[in-house]
Simulated scan of single mutants.
Amino acid sequence: MENNKFILDSLKANLNSLDSATTWIFVTLLIVVLASFGSDEKLEFASFKIDRKYAGPIIYGMLVGLNFQVLKLLHNVNSILIEIKSGFGAETFELARIMLNKHPWIFNPFSEFESITSLIFDNLGYALLIVIWWMGNAIAYKLMFKQGRKIKLVGTGLAGLYLVFGLSSMAMIQAISEKVTYSSLKLITPFVGIVIGAVLFSALLYPLRKEIKSKKAVN
């Protein structure tokens, strides 16, 4: 029984950390979005000031680090579930499944409730996670868009890592979902999030593309 409690507490701790990490990412990105609309040479958010010239790669770097943290936590959750399933019995695994399904993590991709509105809210968290990923990509890319070649090169490398970690996180979420959820909509949700995120990405970059086209037309 003591071992059961320990493994379930470990699972809960990782879920709590995922909740904190993803919420922090979301809040940080909102602050950066607001700060990026200014025209100052330095981008200011929280108590930090970043030269706008280097803001894109720096934000990509931050996002890569945070995404890696999320990926590691998801890996922990998946590993714990495998351990529970193989060594702790069906009853403990059912408790673990319920914990994942009912955890109050606002972006919980494993949420499953039985109510009229659960069809929407159970899948909203996962879709929002993907939208947040796209939002981070759009903001960093926007800030990097008009910078020099060297800065773009560094930023592109970090963007590649960001993509790898993002796709790996999706794969890990899918692996966990197959163990603890029953809804077939969980297979569709990622695509909905990707579409919404891609639209958001295009919308954020549209003014830049328009500006570049205008300059080319003038020249």
Rank of each mutant, 00 (worst) to 15 (best):
E94N: 08
D40E: 15
G160M: 00
V164N: 01
L73W: 02
A55Q: 00
V154M: 09
I98K: 15
H75R: 10
F107L: 15
M99C: 12
S10N: 15
I130A: 00
N101V: 04
L143A: 07
N137T: 13
V70C: 05
K85C: 06
K215R: 13
V64F: 01
V199R: 01
Y141D: 13
A198Y: 13
T181D: 03
G125W: 03
L66Y: 09
L100F: 04
V32T: 04
S118C: 02
E112K: 07
D122A: 00
E94K: 09
P104G: 03
K12R: 14
N137S: 14
L185W: 14
L66G: 06
S115H: 09
S214A: 15
V192F: 06
L143C: 05
F26A: 15
L30Y: 10
I25C: 09
V164L: 08
K146S: 15
L95T: 10
Y126P: 05
S168T: 10
F68N: 09
F121L: 08
M99A: 13
I130T: 01
Y126H: 13
L128M: 10
V154K: 08
S177M: 06
K72Y: 13
K152M: 11
G160P: 01
F113P: 03
A13Q: 14
S20H: 11
F93N: 00
K72E: 09
M135Y: 12
P57S: 01
D40Q: 12
Y54N: 10
V33T: 13
F145R: 15
N78Y: 10
P207F: 02
I130E: 00
M170P: 05
V180Q: 03
E211K: 01
I120Y: 11
Y141Q: 12
L128E: 06
V154A: 11
M62P: 01
E44S: 14
T181P: 06
G89I: 00
F113I: 09
I120E: 07
N101P: 02
D40Y: 11
I31P: 03
A198L: 13
S115V: 06
V131R: 02
S47P: 07
A96Q: 03
G65E: 02
G65Q: 00
A90D: 10
V192Y: 01
S183A: 10
R149P: 08
S20T: 14
K102G: 04
A55V: 00
I31F: 14
G56P: 01
R52G: 02
S214Y: 10
K215T: 09
S39L: 11
T92A: 00
I196W: 05
S202A: 15
Y60G: 03
P190I: 05
F110K: 06
V199W: 05
K12N: 15
K72A: 12
M1L: 13
F165K: 03
I151C: 07
M1Y: 11
I106V: 15
M135C: 14
L63A: 01
T92H: 00
E41K: 14
E211W: 06
M1E: 12
